[in-house]
Measured scan of single mutants.
Amino acid sequence: GSLMYASIFGNVSAIIQRLYSGTARYHTQMLRVREFIRFHQIPNPLRQRLEEYFQHAWSYTNGIDMNAVLKGFPECLQADICLHLNRSLLQHCKPFRGATKGCLRALAMKFKTTHAPPGDTLVHAGDLLTALYFISRGSIEILRGDVVVAILGKNDIFGEPLNLYARPGKSNGDVRALTYCDLHKIHRDDLLEVLDMYPEFSDHFWSSLEITFNLRDTNMIPGSPGSTELEGGFSRQRKRKLSFRRRTDKDTEQPGEVSALGPGRAGAGPSSRGRPGGPWGESPSSGPSSPESSEDEGPGRSSSPLRLVPFSSPRPPGEPPGGEPLMEDCEKSSDTCNPLSGAFSGVSNIFSFWGDSRGRQYQELPRCPAPTPSLLNIPLSSPGRRPRGDVESRLDALQRQLNRLETRLSADMATVLQLLQRQMTLVPPAYSAVTTPGPGPTSTSPLLPVSPLPTLTLDSLSQVSQFMACEELPPGAPELPQEGPTRRLSLPGQLGALTSQPLHRHGSDPGS
């Protein structure tokens, strides 16, 4: 009898404990919600809404976190579960008819179910419309201010047509639940991603989709105040780019002037030289400038040598048109050559190039014969006009050509200096018209024969001689050997007369 009593008592207590286990969990969670309300000092109306929603959600799901349970299964099984949970929507909604099984599984994985109690606001006026909503159960109302403009029910759709707008718009009203509602919502990016994977279904979906109420604000059109608020930074940046392009296009129409201050000032006329910023005076940081632009901040801005204009002085008759350009485009679109090309026009420029290279940067340069637009006047290309890779490749080509020119210049200078040193070592320090008596009659020769300089066969020296023939050397430049009979510069000019005159010897006659 005691054994029977113990078994009955144990079973009854276990049954009672299981009955009250759900209630215990409910009270535990309710205590957490109330502690949250007390800690954050939530006001009474919002506090009442929180408690009511918790009670309804507990009775609806029995305190089970559906998302946590669903995430515990593998992905393939999750797709089947989501397809079952959203079967009513996918079967009865017209846009989803005719979709393949794979497309429906992908869509079912992207849908999220939302449960809303009465009085809950789903979308506020001015919120971004980031999702498309399908009503599965219940009814909602749409308000503009305090005026109800629409009441939607089961199988209705609200949001915005995503295929017509590249960016999400703003809501033009509040969406509030009238009863307990079940909503299926899919985010904008998720829907577009699935439709991109199934393009054959995309056309059918957009053609058959009928949005019951379009929440997009109709005033959000390009150029409206609301649109400016939504895309303020983007609009200002776009206007700045367009104004920069218009100014650079105007600059290219004036090829007669070359400016070292950047493309923003290349198009300024002579009357605007004294102004601080020219056409860019209202925004000094709008356009890029070269490193020399920092010198323009000092006094005497109108007389600054940074602004270059072609000189009108005539060229000498024998002067060549100019050196070879550094870039391939210089032959086609440049009416002034790079300062480095002028360094190779003569030997005198070679000796004085490194010492006063900055001073020569603004000297007169030889002109190319074609009066085409200036290379320095070409505006900086924006990322939309020329690819970045093209600019980098041009810079690399320019750097390689500069290296080759520097190597060639160093070799030419070394060769010229070597020839000058050899000339100085071969010439005796001094010569006299009267020579010392020699031991015999073989001493009648006034000077030792001097062998002429070897013929220069280097390509670089031939180019130097060509430049010497075309360029007029300055007075202080050293002379180079030329073709024809060679003669030492330090010898007297009348050596031929010395050989014809008898030598005057000093000596005593033994017979006297």
Rank of each mutant, 00 (worst) to 15 (best):
Q237C: 12
S382C: 13
D174P: 01
D329R: 07
Q501G: 11
S171D: 01
Q363V: 07
L395K: 04
Y180S: 04
G138I: 01
P387V: 06
R238M: 09
S139Q: 12
R238S: 12
Y362N: 08
Y198W: 09
L261N: 10
P288H: 04
F205A: 01
P168T: 10
S290T: 15
I378L: 06
R505F: 05
P383L: 12
E392R: 11
E392H: 14
C337H: 14
S312G: 10
F201R: 02
M327P: 08
G496L: 03
P481K: 15
V427I: 11
V347K: 12
E253F: 10
A260L: 12
S313Y: 12
P255Q: 10
Q463D: 08
Q501D: 14
L242S: 11
R167L: 11
G287C: 12
A266E: 11
Q423H: 07
V194Y: 01
Y165K: 13
P299G: 15
D182P: 01
R238F: 12
L420W: 01
F344S: 06
F344P: 08
E297W: 15
S443E: 11
P478F: 10
L491T: 06
L209F: 14
D356E: 14
L128R: 10
R307L: 07
D203A: 15
R360F: 14
R307D: 06
L395D: 04
S293D: 15
A177W: 01
S357I: 05
S227G: 08
S465I: 08
S357M: 01
L230W: 10
P316V: 08
P371V: 10
D249Y: 08
S462A: 11
A166S: 10
E257F: 12
P510I: 06
R137T: 11
G226C: 07
G159Q: 02
S382A: 06
S202I: 10
P168G: 03
A430R: 09
V194A: 04
F351R: 07
W206I: 05
S283Y: 03
E392K: 06
G264L: 13
P369Y: 06
E471H: 13
P168S: 05
N155F: 12
S393R: 08
E160L: 02
F205K: 01
P439L: 09
P305H: 09
G355K: 15
L456I: 10
S381G: 10
S202K: 14
G262E: 13
P428D: 13
H187Q: 07
L456H: 08
E319A: 07
S136D: 07
N163Q: 08
A397S: 08
C337V: 14
T415Q: 06
R386F: 13
G281W: 06
S136R: 09
S374D: 04
F158R: 01
P255Y: 15
T444N: 12
C368Q: 13
P373D: 10
P478A: 07
R422Y: 05
L448G: 09
Q401T: 05
K332M: 10
P291H: 13
L426V: 09
L209C: 10
Y362K: 07
R367L: 08
R315P: 15
V148K: 05
P429C: 12
L261H: 10
S207G: 13
R301Y: 05
P446M: 07
P437T: 10
Q363I: 05
Q482W: 12
Q399V: 11
Y362D: 12
L398D: 01
T436Y: 11
E472I: 14
S259D: 14
S443P: 11
V175M: 01
G169H: 01
R367W: 07
E324I: 10
L503C: 06
G269M: 11
P429E: 08
V149D: 03
V464Y: 04
S334V: 12
P454Q: 10
G233C: 12
E141R: 03
R247D: 12
L453S: 09
S348R: 08
G138H: 01
P310C: 14
F244A: 10
R505N: 08
L402T: 06
A433F: 08
P168V: 12
P492M: 14
D146Y: 03
